[in-house]
Design a protein around this nucleic acid. Structure first.
Lengths: 144, 144
DNA sequence: ATAGACCCTCCAATGATGGGAGGGTCAAGC
DNA sequence: GCTTGACCCTCCCATCATTGGAGGGTCTAT
């Protein structure tokens, strides 16, 4: 296997990150190519490809670019205190949990409304009634 | 209470939707003002304000604008079959459930990793190890 | 030399929302 | 009547990560 510099397309295949996104990460300074060729092509080495994979995995865990920038710089720093990594992870985790709870509240309400809806030819519909601000039997399931 | 046409600011207060968003809903054709004043001010009646509230509630349940456009047109149609409303709600519900499951998988993985991280001065960190593609003890918690 | 696959940069759009600039309208008080 | 301040108008821009395309240059194999 050729371990020399890769083109952006090769780095994309090796990392699973799209060519477009690799260019974007370069542009925002997250992962810069090791060098440029004579013809101005980006050249990536295995280290850069590992960083791209790192980003891909971090994105899959829901981290945003700002968090990934921090994680990446900690990853590059062999002296990092794991405390800092854990803090970022826990902050993100709390964020995830909040969003999950919000979406679950939506889903629960919606499930209840859909369950109460006949879903036939008739126009009467508790879903629309709720959205329209029905005053009947509220205060329980509608509280988000 | 004055039931005549309201200005956009009054409609915003009455509906809980921001002035900016009311203008946006007008622009995209979701809720158009009942009329325009001499001075080109948008004028909203109670019906429009009810529709704004409808949108607000639907947004709180996570519906996107395309879904809301459909729900709104069903709401306006007294002949609608509740089946159609229910179908939209159930599609959205399935979507929500999928997203919730995805986020829960992220959160579970992250919780596990954070739990395994000492979070002290030392650089060793299972979180970074996982992001970096560690080959040790995978295949269980890392499967998204 | 030419075809085809690849690469480059720049621009635009996504969805819902907020922010602001620059300017017009209206009502109250003088 | 005129000023002031609150309100309104229409544009434009930014967000966040990602994708798409246009227009054009580079490389490789035939």
């Amino acid at each position: 296997m050729n371990m020399g510099p890769m083109t952006i397309g090769e780095a994309a295949k090796a990392s699973g990150v799209s060519v477009k996104m690799i260019r974007y990460y370069d542009e925002v300074g997250l992962v810069r190519p090791a060098s440029r060729s004579e013809g101005n092509y980006r050249e990536y080495d295995t280290r850069a490809v590992n960083e791209l994979r790192f980003i891909k995995r971090a994105r899959a865990l829901g981290f945003d670019m700002a968090e990934i920038a921090q994680l990446l710089s900690l990853w590059r720093d062999r002296e990092r205190p794991s405390r800092e990594v854990k803090a970022i992870a826990q902050r993100h985790l709390a964020d995830l949990d909040t969003r999950i709870r919000e979406m679950q509240a939506m889903a629960d309400t919606l499930r209840h409304l859909a369950h109460c809806c006949a879903g036939d030819d008739r126009p009467d519909c508790p879903i629309l009634a709720d959205l329209g601000g029905a005053d009947l039997g509220r205060a329980d399931h509608t509280t988000l």
